[in-house]
Amino acid sequence: MNGVRIGISLFIVVLIGLSTAGWIWTGAHQSAAQSTASRTVLALGIMTGLVGLRFLWGRRKA
């Protein structure tokens, strides 16, 4: 059970990491308007990843 959970978590961490790298990259390579839009969706993606980790590792109702 934990092996599966760790595997899923690592994948989500990779997604969060790449989205964070995207956050940094967009600030330097896109126009202000594009960068704001990109950062908004990347931040939402990161938040979704964190919510996923929270539900994956949180206590579940029996």
């Binding site: 989500i12 790449l18 995207g22 990109s38 996923g52």
Partner: peptide, 21 residues
């Protein structure tokens, strides 16, 4: 509003995470 690469990274993320949960 959103450039294609970032948009698809976002869409794929928000579909994949609930799916895998």
């Amino acid at each position: 509003w959103v450039p294609r690469v970032e948009l698809h990274l976002f869409y794929n993320t928000i579909v994949f995470i609930p799916m895998v949960i």
